[in-house]
Structures are given as C-alpha cells and as structure tokens.
C-alpha cells in the first residue's frame, strides 16, 4: 500500500540545512492502523505530508498503491490524493459558509461526481459518522466533536484507501476525542488504512502499530499485538 524508501526531506532555514526526515524507509500494508508519535520537530507532520502527497521528498522513492508517485506533477499528485487519501486535520478545516452536507460533498464536487451518486455518497458518509441529523447545520452550529466527525465524513466520502489524521483529537475534549477515535477505528475496521499522528500516548497506544520518530528518523516501530501473539 505505502512504501517509502530512503526518504529524506530537507529544509533550508536561515541559510542552514535542517533534515526533517533523514533516510526513512517504511512500509505500511493495506488496512493497518498506525500511530505516529514523537516529540515536536521529530518529523511526524512532514512524514504525514509526504505520505499525503502534500509535500515531496528531496530524496528517496514513494510507491503508493503500486504507483511510483515520487516524480508526479502537481496535477498527478492531486488526482492521487483525491482517489486514495482522506485527510483529517486537528482544526477540522470545514468551510464556514457551507453546511455539513456541503462540506462533506466537496471532494465529490472536485472530482466531478454529481446528482444522485453524490447525494448517496454524502448520505452514507454522514450516516457512518452519526451526523445525518445535522446535515443542514453550518460548522459554527456544530460542537467540536461534531465538526471533526463532519471532517471525517468528508475524508471518507470518496472511499479512500488511506485516512491520514493529524492530531485529530488535539482540539477536542476527552469525550469528543474518544468519539472521534471510535469513528476513525470503525473506518479502519471496514478496511481503510489509518495513520494517526498524535502527541497523546493514550490515543497512540490504541493503534496496532506504533511508530516513534526522533530527529527525522524512525526510532521505534512496534506491533504490540504481534509481539503478544
């Protein structure tokens, strides 16, 4: 599903090179539930951005679902993102002027899906996150947890193979955070690969595979269930 080989991401800050990721190789299979943890500046978000095709590595090779995406142009990356990846952000990033339903429909709209097909996909996504009764509400009429569930519905509406969640509970109270994680885990149980970047050890420990990044490199790659087995 996801195969990163010798990925390096280097930034130049104040005339000096800073390695956000250095020679990272990683393989994630379809349907895995992976948490990515590590201190600030360890390269978590950079890794997620590269996997999400929002950023490009300076070196290395990235193969996604059998396609080498390392050298795709901007349009090619946009198509791959649209087909394969759903994003969930810490700050939800719902468009304020659109209703929950319209926000969820956005990826379908960009992909040119319309009419009955679009409506059915939106209905299904909203039902999956338990927000069918809030479909006409705008983001400022929803609670934080509901907003994040709307964002998850938007992430899954195109039936992606991967969900990338960057601190999905970071802006929520404990109860809402747990609800959101349950929804994401439900999606994973249905076969979607789930990658969660988090600072919260409790959230991180729920994943079946836990990556710990330090100084731009994978310091630990644990599979507790496998160890126990």
């Amino acid at each position: 599903m996801i195969s990163l080989s010798n990925i390096t991401r280097e930034f130049v800050v104040g005339g000096q090179s800073v390695f956000a990721l250095h020679d990272v190789s990683l393989s994630i299979d379809s349907g895995e539930y992976v948490s990515i943890m590590g201190p600030s500046g360890s390269g978590k978000s950079t890794l997620l951005n590269i996997i999400g095709l929002l950023d490009r590595p300076n070196q290395g090779t990235y193969v996604l679902s059998g396609h080498n995406v390392t050298d795709l142009d901007a349009d090619g990356l946009a198509v791959m993102r649209r087909r394969h990846i759903g994003f969930v952000f810490q700050f939800f990033h719902l468009i304020p002027r659109l209703t929950a339903e319209e926000n969820v429909a956005l990826p379908l709209m960009l992909a040119g899906v319309h009419g009955k097909e679009r409506q059915e996909a939106v209905d299904k996504a909203l039902a999956a996150v338990g927000l069918s009764d809030r479909r006409k509400h705008k983001p400022d009429e929803l609670s934080g947890g509901q907003r994040q569930r709307a964002a998850i519905a938007r992430a899954v509406v195109m039936a992606p193979s991967i969900i990338l969640a960057d601190e999905p509970t970071g802006n929520l109270d404990r109860k809402s955070g747990e609800d959101v994680i349950h929804v994401l885990e439900k999606m994973n149980a249905e076969g979607i690969t789930l990658l969660v970047v988090t600072h919260d050890p409790e959230i991180g420990s729920r994943a079946r595979r836990r990556l710990l990044l330090r100084d731009g490199a994978v310091a630990e790659d644990k599979r507790p269930d496998a160890l126990r087995a």
């Binding site: 901007a74 349009d75 946009a78 993102r81 994003f87 990033h93 956005l106 938007r154």
Partner: peptide, 16 residues
Amino acid sequence: QKEFGLLFALGIHRRQ
C-alpha cells in the same frame, strides 16, 4: 488561504 489549502488537500487542480 486555509480554504484553498483544504481544496488542495482534497485534490483540486491549480487551474480549477
């Protein structure tokens, strides 16, 4: 700007 960033993440093309 955030809206446009989101649209990029959702797969909008630059010309769109």
